[in-house]
């Protein structure tokens, strides 16, 4: 009970406060952008060659403001915004009118989740286990080889690395498609050809994320392990003749993983903001590209829809991490 009163409730209040402040910031910041969505829209219409009379433009501004929910002072908009948010309604997109934000996010989310979740679930254990072993056996030749590879791969700028993968495995040796989430015109359905097609298309983006993310996890873990290895409890276990398997697993890697668990939770939370550069390089559908276009167009509702997911995602990931952390490190306790 003490835990609930002294830790859980204040922590939950903090969680809600973070989300509230984050969403408020998301409401204000797009409105400070120099591009006004109403003028942009009218500009787009004029560019398409529609003749608009000066009087008609005024009428259009009013009706666009009404449709976009941009009427009244910021305060009135803000209150209305929260009202809609509680009903789970983010409104309609300004630029793909009248598609709702929910529908657009809903369409992009599975792509992003599928790609980033898979990449994280593969690269985190892989990087940490290989990094842990390489750190413990840092004098062995294989450890040095893997370390050298990671040292070369890791500092590559992601976009260059991803582009190189694309050129090599998509163009020079055309094993994988160079763009898109599926073949053009394929209807998404739950059957084997579709799944195969999606896997083929997402292989290169996933590979790029796994390799670079894995290299980062590898290098961090290797360094942490080398530090933990010098700790007296590891030395003592060696002096006690504990078998090497146990020392590596339960003494070294187990303790070195503690900071890496924090990293995992944070990267899982960040999934909800998408992976912009991956999506651009591989022309892959997802939240990152959607958010980028929304910002360029000043599509307030879409920006807000995506960032609310991202804010809630990161805040929730950290909350869960905080609550679970005592399971990993008994020295952390909340009473």
């Amino acid at each position: 009970m003490n835990f609930v009163k002294r830790y859980l409730i204040p922590r939950l209040i903090q969680y809600l406060l973070v989300i509230f402040l984050g969403i408020t910031a998301v409401f204000i910041i797009p409105r400070l952008l120099p591009n006004d969505p109403v003028n942009t829209m009218i500009g787009v219409m004029q560019a398409r060659g529609q003749q608009l009379e000066p009087g008609a433009i005024d009428g259009m501004v009013t009706s666009l403001k009404e449709m976009y929910g941009l009427e009244g002072s910021w305060w009135e908009q803000y209150v209305a915004f929260w009202g809609r948010l509680f009903r789970g309604d983010f409104g309609v997109s300004f630029f793909q009118f009248p598609t709702t934000v929910n529908e657009m996010v809903g369409r992009a989310m599975p792509w992003t989740l599928g790609l980033l979740l898979t990449a994280t679930v593969i690269n985190w254990p892989l990087g940490n286990i290989v990094g842990g072993l390489a750190g413990y056996y840092s004098r062995k030749p294989w450890s040095r080889v893997v370390d050298t590879i990671a040292m070369i791969v890791r500092p590559q700028p992601y976009y260059i690395f991803a582009f190189a993968l694309l050129l090599i495995l998509g163009y020079a040796i055309p094993w994988f498609p160079v763009a898109g989430g599926t073949e053009i015109g394929r209807k998404i359905a739950f059957n084997w050809p579709t799944i195969k097609d999606i896997l083929r298309h997402s292989f290169l983006p996933a590979l790029s994320l796994v390799i670079l993310g894995g290299a980062i996890n590898f290098q961090t873990m290797k360094l942490i392990v080398q530090n933990v290895n010098a700790e007296s409890f590891v030395q003592y276990a060696k002096l006690g003749g504990v078998t090497e398997n146990r020392i590596v697993g339960r003494y070294v890697i187990r303790n070195a993983l503690l900071p890496q668990i924090t990293g995992l939770a944070l990267s899982l939370g960040q999934i909800f903001s998408g992976a912009l550069i991956t999506e651009i390089v591989f022309s892959y559908p997802g939240l990152g590209g959607l958010l980028f276009n929304a910002i360029v167009n000043g599509d307030y509702n879409l920006i807000m829809g995506i960032t609310v997911f991202s804010i809630v995602g990161i805040a929730t990931a950290i909350l869960i991490l905080d609550l679970l952390y005592p399971l990993f490190d008994p020295r952390v306790r909340y009473t």
Binding site: E231, S232, F233, Q235, Y236, A237, G240, G241, V242, T243, R246, R250, Y251, R254, N255, L258, F328, D329, P330, R331
Partner: peptide, 22 residues
């Protein structure tokens, strides 16, 4: 007084590791 015991294991686990290894 030094941190010679593994901080994330209960003592019985440490016992298990030390004795089980022999």
């Amino acid at each position: 007084s030094m941190s010679v015991l593994n901080p994330v294991l209960k003592l019985k686990e440490t016992y298990k590791d030390f004795i089980g290894s022999h």
